[in-house]
Amino acid sequence: MHRDSIIYYMREQTANPSDEEIIHRVVNGDVDVFRYLLERHHARVFGIVGRRVPRRDAEEVAHNAFVRAYTSLSTYERKGDFVSWLSKIAVRACYDYWREKYNRREQPMSALNEEQLKLVARITSDQSSRAHGERASMQEARDLLGWAMDRLSAEDRSVLELVHIEGRSVKEAAELLGWSAVNVKVRAYRSRKKLRAILEKAIAEGEKRYENAEKDTG
C-alpha cells in the first residue's frame, strides 16, 4: 500500500512537474518539456501582450517573448518566481515592439475624425454611463487611446500603461521595465502630461474642423 502511494506520488510529480523542475530539465537538454511552460503560462503572457500591442501583432510578440525566455533560461536565477520573470520578458518584448515601431512611424493625422469626435461628445455628455456598457464604443475608445499613444515614445507608452492605466506601483513598474524607481516616477508624470496634451490638441482641432464643415454645409 505504501509502495503504491509512493508510485502514485511519483507519477503525479512526473505528470505535474514544477516550473523549477521543467527549467532544470530544459537547461539540461530536454527541450520537449518547454511545452509545459508554454501551456501553463501562455495565458499570462497573452494577458500582458494582448492589451499592449495591436491584435494582429500580439501572437508574434508573445512568440518572441517565449523564444527570448527560452534563450535566457540558463541565466534565470531561482530567486524570484518564474511567472514574474516571464512577465518582465513579456513587458520588455512589448517595449521593444513599440521602440521599433516608433522609429519607423509615419506621421499620423493630428486631429480626431468625425466618429472619434462623436465618441468624445458621448463620453463627456450624460450618455457616458450608458456608453460604458456598449461594446462598440469600447472598441472605439481603445482605438482612440491607441491613436493618442502612437504619438508617444516607447518609454512613455510603457510607463503610462503600467502606472496610470493598469494602476501598478512605481516599484512594480520599475522592476518590470528594469529601470530605476525615480526614472519611472518622472516618466510617469511626463507621459501622462503628454497624453493629455495630445488629446486636448486633437479635440480642439477636431471641434474646429467639425464646426467649419457644418458651416460649409449650412
Binding site: 497573452f46 500580439a58 463620453i123 469600447m138 482612440l144 493618442a148
Partner: peptide, 24 residues
C-alpha cells in the same frame, strides 16, 4: 479631459483577453 481620459483608460482595462491560434 479628465472624463475622456478616465473612459479611455477604462476601455483599455476592459479589453477581452486574447487567445492564441491553434498553431501558435
Amino acid at each position: 479631459l479628465d472624463k475622456v481620459e478616465k473612459y479611455l483608460f477604462f476601455s483599455y482595462r476592459a479589453g477581452d483577453d486574447l487567445r492564441p491560434g491553434t498553431d501558435w
